[in-house]
Design a binder for these strands. Sequence first.
DNA 1: AGCCTTTGACCAGCG
DNA 2: TCGCTGGTCAAAGGC
Length: 500
Amino acid sequence: MSLSRRKASSYPWDLILGKIITCMAGTNNRGALMEDWMLPSPSPRTQMSSFWNEEFSCGPFSNIFSENCSNKTQDGIDKTKSSFDSSGEETVQDTKASVQFESNLFDSNEKSASYGGLAERMAARAGFGILKIDTSRVSSSAPIRSPVTIPPGVSPRELLESPVFLPNAIAQPSPTTGKLPFLMPHNCKYVTPSVPKKAEDRLHDDSAFSFQPILRSKPPTFLTADKGANVVHQNQSLANDNQRESSLQSNSTGTKDITDTNLVKPKTCDSMLDNDHPSPADEQEESEENENGEYSSAPVTAPAEDGYNWRKYGQKQVKNGEHPRSYYKCTHPNCPVKKKVERSHEGHVTEIVYKGSHSHPLPHPNRRPSVPFSQFSDLQADGPENSGSKPGHSTATLRGSAPNGHVHDVHNGVLETKQSGSLTTTETADTSVMESREAVDVSSGDKDEKATHGAIPSTFDGGEDETESKRRLDPISKYIIQAYHPSQSILTEDGCFCRY
DNA sequence: AGCCTTTGACCAGCG
DNA sequence: TCGCTGGTCAAAGGC
């Protein structure tokens, strides 16, 4: 498989949709769906279009899971909704917004659905029509003019990298790219602390959506391990959201007491989001769907690509650990950050622990060829502020892991939190860049977060800002993020994918 | 040449 | 003090 194809496959949407497909194993249209699937690098948007047109035009996205998977799931969804309803009308609004948005998309999809030929369908997938050129009218002397007009000041490269043209990984979340969080199962919001809220915000802001500079397109990894990132980010972002979510984030995360080390077993949703950031050590975890629409043994993602450079300096088989543990150091001079990654024998990342705070901004993208361009952009824009930890925000860390109070750690049955270091419960984790980045990506539409956490740095000079200064004062912190292979995922009562 | 991974050895903490 | 364990070092080799 070509590199490009692999990259496309690595996009979280592939994972999400792959899971959906798997979930829909009982449906009759799977074959048709997979047929579309086989088209080269379909964009998330088109994938979803096909998805809806062929499979789920009968109801809201959230019903997909309940109708195609299990009644139990629906029950879980209902429960979840109930819990949110109790918090106010916000949930209702979200639901409405979601439904309306879906409706809009359906409308657009109906158009594409009428397309008959492959070209039309591909055009629909690409988000723009394929112009038919009448070659008979083209003279050899006439200048060949592209049907696409590129505005002055916009390079073709930029244009190509725009969300519309980007089939997947590079595209940032937007209605155009189909990467909007709302596309995820509504309940997935609970998967990651940060994702949820962001998705909600996005829904509210749909009408006001506007493209923003690519900051952190981390689809993935949005969690991953990068899931942990989300958790961390949540800590920061929660500064403004604490009150609102505090009611939702119950004591269920009793483990959340905190620490500088947080172990989170992310739900699949997070995991999927994290995907696109294969870290050097995690690249192998890129997952691919096989012919059956199932994921190969290749792991899903790791949390990992956080934009920093890591050097592996050791590996050990931990005594009681099921999997070998790898030790990584940040390659930046004098940067004390380390991380431990545990992988299953199949190569799946089962746990990631970040320790310490980066004492430097994210490395320049150009120095990290292994990282997709979009990530570079994000990373670059990200700056140090996201990597910094904010004492006092850390309490949100674990909340994020179980926003709704539901811990979906099927593996152990509980959210695990490891504590190490001297951090107090209120000064837990520093916000590791990685994790927070993912969160940032998802929450790009969250103005509050931006303002509060600098997710989209207002001072994007790559220098050190106040946050950075604070971050450097933070005690060493650790994050433990656990991920599971998608093939081992199940749909929980909450409508979220969990791994077992 | 530089950077990374691998891997056995070494070190430190703990009971 | 000894053994166990987790973490780290550093040489060797690969890319």
